[in-house]
């Protein structure tokens, strides 16, 4: 039973952030490869505030503001840079933010992480926390489906298909990209708020490159831009990922094996979706 509760939490916890990143990367075809950068800033914002003030509401607010600020920077870059340059810069920003988190030891305790993250009294058991997270995830899926069919969904799709054609009908790239990045900031803050309480420790290892690889793998395997497809991919790939921990494999091999398996899945997914992953380049 604890395993299923754990799986339920992990799946539900991936959903808000990954579906939100899917709006940017999958639907908008914006090469934002720095979602983990937002996750780091939001998570540290939440935990440091929580540990120093004890206020959950304030911690959530600080986490959200931090995520919105860094997302505004990413959104600005997405308007100013070509897709390939944006991909490289956002990856670099992820690494830079991670390095700051690891090296600013007086604030973050560096590689030791921050243990003893308190929980809301309502979340005294993992079961309550997992069920609450699952409810939030379902609500987030409904919100994403609504967005997909909304005016915003059509406008971001139009920009993804041809930027000039979209601008010629009055669509503002900066406005649409800001909305998309802010939705991600909100989704990521919700995820960070719950996951920090579930894990009760904030550790920089959780924001390394493999976490980002898992994001991209789920989005590509589930069909970029598809809410239900990516949700299904999150469910199946999380079961595979977590299930590996319980296979009779020597402990030291689990990590590398996981990376190899997800690397292969990512390769196959990119190959399979090669015509739809990258933005169209049509002349005017």
């Amino acid at each position: 039973m604890p395993f299923f509760i754990h799986i339920l939490f992990v799946i539900s916890n991936w959903i808000p952030s990954m579906l939100s990143h899917n709006v940017i990367f999958g639907k908008g075809k914006i090469f934002h490869f720095g979602p983990m950068g937002v996750a780091i800033i939001s998570s540290y914002g939440i935990v440091i505030t929580l540990k120093s003030t004890g206020s959950f509401a304030l911690a959530f607010l600080v986490g959200l503001v931090c995520a919105l600020l860094i997302s505004a920077v990413f959104a600005w870059l997405s308007v100013k840079l070509e897709p390939d340059a944006l991909g490289v810069i956002t990856l670099a920003m992820h690494i830079a933010i991670l390095n700051i988190a690891i090296n600013w030891t007086s604030l973050t305790r560096g590689a030791l992480g921050i243990p003893g993250v308190p929980r809301l009294s309502f979340f005294s058991s993992n079961t309550t926390l997992s069920i609450t997270m699952a409810v939030v995830a379902v609500l987030w899926i409904i919100f994403m489906l609504y967005l997909d069919r909304s005016s915003f969904g059509r406008q971001i799709s139009a920009l993804a298909e041809h930027e000039w054609y979209a601008k010629s009908i009055g669509i503002s790239k900066i406005k649409i990209n800001l909305i998309a990045f802010f939705i991600y900031a909100l989704g990521m803050t919700i995820v960070a708020f719950f996951s920090m309480q579930y894990l009760t420790i904030l550790h920089p290892n959780d924001f390394m490159f493999p976490a980002f690889i898992f994001y991209i793998t789920c989005e590509l395997a589930g069909k970029p831009g598809s809410v239900l497809g990516v949700t299904l991919a999150i469910v199946l790939l999380t079961i595979l990922k977590e299930g590996l921990r319980f296979m009779p494999i020597p402990t030291g091999l689990t990590g590398p094996l996981e990376l190899i398996i997800f690397g292969v899945i990512l390769f196959v997914a990119v190959w399979w979706r090669r015509d739809s992953v990258f933005p169209n380049t049509r002349s005017v």
């Binding site: 298909e161 041809h162 000039w164 601008k167 010629s168 503002s172 049509r282 005017v284």
Partner: peptide, 24 residues
């Protein structure tokens, strides 16, 4: 004035290569 703003002011553009969204 930016391109989207000009469009909103009332300048419409029809492109040589068909400026429609084919996936929609």
């Amino acid at each position: 004035v930016s391109a989207p703003k000009r469009a909103q002011m009332g300048i419409g553009r029809v492109f040589q290569n068909f400026g429609i969204f084919r996936e929609m």
